[in-house]
Design a protein around this nucleic acid. Structure first.
Lengths: 266, 266
DNA sequence: CTTCCAATG
DNA sequence: CATTAGAAG
């Protein structure tokens, strides 16, 4: 029985100034996955670095002020792992994994970039290395009788239903054919994972989890669904509820992403 | 008859957001010298670039967001000059000169830097080139029967009375022996100029015109007098009133400097 | 449009 | 402690 939330905070220090703390205090989740922390633990206030009632783990990027993922868990994990074994990304602040009893849960922040740039090439290298890792992780977990849940900002919308203007974005990073095909492999035989939110809501547009700060994207709900719960099928089948906490970042707008929460039954 | 104000605005766009406009609307000056504009004219709102009732002249630095001086005059100058003939500093946004009838007035922003750095070396090169220019300017003006007034942020406190903690600052840029000696030459035979505010207030501590943003420098009046009216002696003798508008940047604090105003009688 | 950094003051 | 620009998103 787990309630898990993932949210890209777009700078935890800025988010904390604008209300992240009260959101965290009010959440019923027992696992929170954070992305784009953009700070080293030492740059965070005590109450944020070690929040009351949580075990907190940080994987900052070597580059200051960039990326950075974290995991907050109500119970203490048995094991932690930073990175997924690809040296280029080991200290890039993009992957942090924890073993809880019967469940491996990870916070992922996949690179983003504009089409045709070096950043996009980096994203593609990440994708190429990460898929085999994911597949291997699922197989090892199956052998151990564990479930796996990779939460985070994957920076890719999978299908037309996953963003407002899919036609206009077919040549934009985040909805490129090769990115979508890669996600299909994650969700297909090769990866063997399930897109939890889409499985529960097969016919909705969205629910979006990111809206650009530019223009009136949030007000018009011109969003993208790029933050996922990616789970082994058995775990996904146990999900009884999944939703985007649009209101959490609405009034105070402490991030351009909204938390994505799923409740996994026993 | 002139009322002249000089103020380092520490970024005119930021100052405008915080109340520079209402200060300008309320000033009785007919010449305003600005330093650290930190913007090209095109980056300023219309009302700021061409303020109602003023002629406005801008000398931005080639390096974006750095330095930049300006002159606002109620009457149109006969001539304008950017730089003082030293190529290194011609487009550094540090010197702008205007000829009004019988008066040459300039806005100066002398480089600042930390002792022992390349910035300090640049400051010293500026000082070395600027003193002969000043001396020549005074002589030419004398031949023409003109007065000269160089207003601005000279980034040097001259004497112990010109900063709160002079003992602690003897090795800090802005109060180094060589900088003080250079100002003494400006105010001595070689330059031939007068420190207008000090001439009127020979026995006051300060009045300071800059307070660091760090700590409680402003509240404790831990300030420096580094913004000067530097005038030919005859003009200085006509000064009937000289003061620092501490309140102008107190309530709203639109700069770390305060305006320094002097009234020159006929 | 917002984050954070770096250089600068 | 504040400014601006620039990289990044």
């Amino acid at each position: 029985m787990h309630t898990v939330t993932t949210v890209n905070v777009n700078g935890l220090r800025a988010a904390a100034r604008k209300g992240f703390g009260s959101w965290l205090a009010g959440t019923g989740a027992d696992v929170v996955c954070l992305q784009e922390v953009r700070a080293e633990p030492g740059q965070l206030d005590d109450g944020l670095r070690r929040p009351e009632g949580w075990h907190a783990y940080w994987a900052p990027a070597a580059a200051k002020g960039r990326a950075g993922v974290a995991l907050l868990t109500r119970s203490e994990p048995e094991r932690l792992r930073i990175g997924f074994g690809e040296p280029e990304f080991d200290d890039s602040g993009r992957y942090l994994e924890a073993d809880l009893p019967g469940l491996t849960v990870a916070s992922l922040y996949l690179p983003s970039g504009e089409a045709g740039t070096e950043r996009q090439a980096e994203k593609e290298r990440f994708m190429a290395a990460f898929l085999p890792y994911l597949a291997g992780l699922r197989k090892r977990a199956a052998d151990d009788g564990r479930e796996v849940l990779i939460c985070g900002d994957w920076n890719i919308a999978h299908q037309p239903a996953d963003l407002k203007n899919w036609r206009a974005n077919q040549r934009n990073a985040g909805f490129l054919p090769e990115e979508r095909a890669w996600l299909s492999r994650v969700f297909g035989e090769e990866g063997g994972y399930t897109d939890v939110v889409r499985a529960l809501h097969p016919d909705t547009a969205g629910p979006y989890s990111w809206w650009s700060y530019r223009g009136r994207a949030f007000d018009n709900d011109t969003g993208w669904r790029i933050d996922y719960h990616v789970a082994t099928p058995q775990l996904a089948g146990r999900c009884v509820k999944a939703y985007v906490e649009r209101a959490a970042t609405h009034a105070e707008r402490w991030s351009d992403h909204a938390p994505v929460t799923a409740v996994y039954g026993p």
